[in-house]
Design a protein around this nucleic acid. Structure first.
Lengths: 196, 196, 196, 196
DNA sequence: CATGAATGAGTATTCATTCAT
DNA sequence: AATGAATGAATACTCATTCAT
């Protein structure tokens, strides 16, 4: 008797997810080029062949990992946007981003690793630019609502601080004063602008 | 007639430099992993074998390229330090860094590409951390001299803005408002702190 | 209610036949090596696993396809032999062969595709040689009955023309003058030999 | 001191030729799909990598082998055409073709093996059709010169006998009466047509 | 100093076949 | 009878590196 469709889909979902997280782990740890498909299969405790039942090739696995990571990030951001009124979201957004950094540093390590690889940007470049634009436009809206004078420019600036902070943290997590830096960001951008 | 020693050394220096700049160009363009030694040799217009007379292997060539780029950056920084008194160097330092970014973006592209590659950080990691610490200690000194209250923390923050700005610019050079961002940095960190 | 034995056998026969014709189609279209078992299963609209209930492996499926094709050819030949007296069968045999070529070219395409593959001839070689010998001995008998002087040699010659014609036709069905060629064969070999 | 250009070209020519003949041998013996690149390299007594210095990939090696075989066949045909006046070339052409068959059967084995493989015909198909058309037009000319009534049709017929004979011979070289068959061809097509 | 022919270990990918359900 | 998830051996191809000349 064959497995039912539901059984199969469960199996597929579980295996797929196992491959994805092994791949994420390894890509972040050793880099895309230095991670072999065999590495991934071994880490996910399955055969190479099976991996290819789930993903067409290494590149589309990368794409899927990227989407997976992005979905995680998006989920956090969306939750903040839904739970807070415009103009008060910035501190929460920052908190969300940096909480994720502390809890899942490999997400961001992967993110930046991919973003600086020309060969990979050829594949994922548009995805990256879209994300960046999206998040920055969030910032613009918040800064705008908060009555800041140059929301566009400040959004660029803020985005730069965030990215810089994330990467500095990843470079040396034990010494980078993440909490204070985040607080400083919030002070600089998060409070309502009180004109004299 | 055999070449004199000087002629030989000149040739060696020129060849070496040609290899280095070809490698830099290609690494920045296609990434380290996707650049073959043959690519580099062709770009530098010499045989693969000869390249191995100049560099032991691909990794040490990378190391040399890195040193080459760093020397270039250091030169600019040192010049600023020598030409200006403590407490007034910050704006010049920023200007120097971002001038180099505009004129030689591939320097920084390579810098960040390498820094996000685990496999490469295993080789160059210490170099990176040293540079970072060095430049940040410059900032600390300047901020300290300028009478800022939390020079250490501000140096971290400033460093983060700089890195973020550089990478945002590299991601989309045509739209990133580099000049305004730099100006904003100078306003935030470069002016003397005037206590009320 | 479980199926009766007859129902089961009917299903089996139908499934088996469906696999066979899918395989024939695909082998002829893409070649044996380029046809995957999955391809065949999909074309026959069943699972890979089930296919292996019907055929032990790809090779034995090929064997079965070959037998199937041969049976088809044999049937035509036998019918001619039964319906006509010795000495008058040659034109009908030719007609039968070339009618089948026009109606089911993939039979012959497969036939020759297999026959020129060393790896396949290792498996099917004897079968091929037997068929060839059988058909040629038919020719010998006919030519002999018809009073030709060198029936053995002429049978070889005739057989060669037939094979050449089939393959030329398969190479370029739109231009090869099949009908005229067959007619020429009949003129050359099919008429009674009238000694002066 | 590097090798001179001539030395290199000599080496390249020798190696290339060695690869080609090993590939021809193996393709003919085991078929294209069953011959691995490693097989070829081993047979030519060199490394896999080196093979790829000479041929871009397996397919282009096949193409080169095909061209090589064709050049050999062409050479024979051209020589006959040059050495004999129109109208008298047919017997010589046949002799040349079948001499080559006897001396280098693997040429023709390869030829027919390739021609019946759909996947390969996708690559070499045009080459095959060109050759066929060329040789047949030779026949047409000869038959025409010789005053035969239907040179076009006879050329098709003749071509078919030739192909059939070659393949029958390859199927069973020990028993196929090649010499007699060729003689018969010459009798049928090679003599001047003497109208009553 | 200079060349490029040569090596071979390493990698992504395919596919016939098995087997738990 | 039926499914399709799972296996892993096999294969084309790449590339850093060496070395004879």
């Amino acid at each position: 008797m064959p497995r039912t469709k539901e059984q199969n889909e469960e199996i597929r979902a579980a295996t797929r997810s196992s491959i994805l997280s092994s791949a994420l782990q390894l890509f972040a740890e050793k880099g895309y080029a230095h991670t072999t498909t065999r590495n991934i299969a071994q880490a996910a405790d399955l055969s190479v062949g099976l991996m290819y039942h789930y993903f067409d090739n290494k590149e589309s696995l990368l794409q899927a990992v990227f989407d997976f990571v992005m979905a995680r990030i998006d989920a956090g951001i969306t939750a903040v946007l839904l739970a807070n009124p415009p103009g008060e979201r910035l501190p929460r957004l920052l908190q969300t981003i940096f909480d994720l950094l502390a809890s899942e540093p490999q997400f961001w390590a992967l993110f930046y690793m991919l973003r600086t690889q020309p060969a990979i940007m050829a594949v994922l470049g548009d995805g990256f630019r879209e994300r960046t634009a999206l998040l920055r436009s969030c910032f613009v809206e918040e800064l705008s609502e908060a009555g800041r004078e140059e929301p566009e420019l400040e959004a660029y600036y803020l985005y730069s601080v965030i990215e810089g902070a994330i990467q500095q943290y990843l470079l040396d997590p034990d010494h980078y004063p993440l909490a204070e830096i985040v607080e400083k960001m919030i002070v600089q951008f998060g409070g309502k602008h009180e004109p004299v």
